[in-house]
């Protein structure tokens, strides 16, 4: 296909080099302003839907759908996945959180394109190789899925949503997340700095 000189820019092709000024990424929004925006979105979810935000549930529904596609017998034999497959007339992807996370992708893309922050790349510290970083990202993702499954929700569905509703379990969960992350941070500092 096309030949582009700047390999980091496959996703966000530069218009031309004379637009160099346009290419610089905008700084992040003030955290308090972004937080108010996020809080208003959460409030809208409460008022319109009577539920909060979430993320891990969408990945769970997607896993149930994909497993059912490849090995339907296995998917139905595991209660954790079979919960999504009980109604044969509808797809597990016909789920509120799945559509919400599709929106999260779109919203993230819109914001990042407006701020010129779309770049193909890997986020890591200077002392770790890309391969190790990708392996750790996968492992961290797997751990997060297990943690969210045990706790019945992730940072969005539990900490953020339940936090605003003063849900007892959500505050317990939130404090544990920070405790777990701070407790381990020292041992994985080589990955980030």
């Amino acid at each position: 296909m096309t030949v582009r000189t700047d390999t980091a820019d496959v996703l966000a092709a530069p218009v031309a080099d004379d637009h160099a000024a346009v290419r610089e990424a905008a700084p992040y929004t003030n955290p308090y302003l972004a937080g108010i925006g996020l809080g208003l979105v959460l409030l809208a979810a409460f008022v319109i839907m009577g539920r909060g935000l979430g993320a891990s549930g969408a990945f769970k529904a997607f896993t149930a759908w994909a497993t059912n596609l490849v090995a339907p017998g296995y998917a139905h034999s595991r209660t954790f996945l079979a919960d999504y497959l009980s109604d044969p007339t509808t797809s597990p992807l016909n789920d509120w959180l799945v559509f919400e996370v599709v929106g999260v992708f779109a919203g993230g893309l819109i914001s990042a394109l407006l701020a010129r922050r779309v770049r193909l790349g890997v986020e890591k510290g200077p002392r770790v190789t890309t391969g190790v970083r990708l392996l750790l990202a996968f492992g961290g993702g797997a751990l997060s899925a297990v943690g969210a499954a045990i706790a019945r929700g992730c940072t969005s569905g539990q900490a953020l949503t339940g936090g605003a509703l003063l849900n007892l379990g959500s505050w317990i969960f939130m404090l544990s997340v920070f405790a777990g992350a701070y407790g381990l941070a020292y041992f994985v500092r080589g990955e980030w700095r």
Partner: peptide, 19 residues
Amino acid sequence: IPLVLQSLAVTHRTLHSAI
């Protein structure tokens, strides 16, 4: 969403993106 993003791109307020 593509209409909004492409309108901003052709007026050079964002970058063109293959997505």
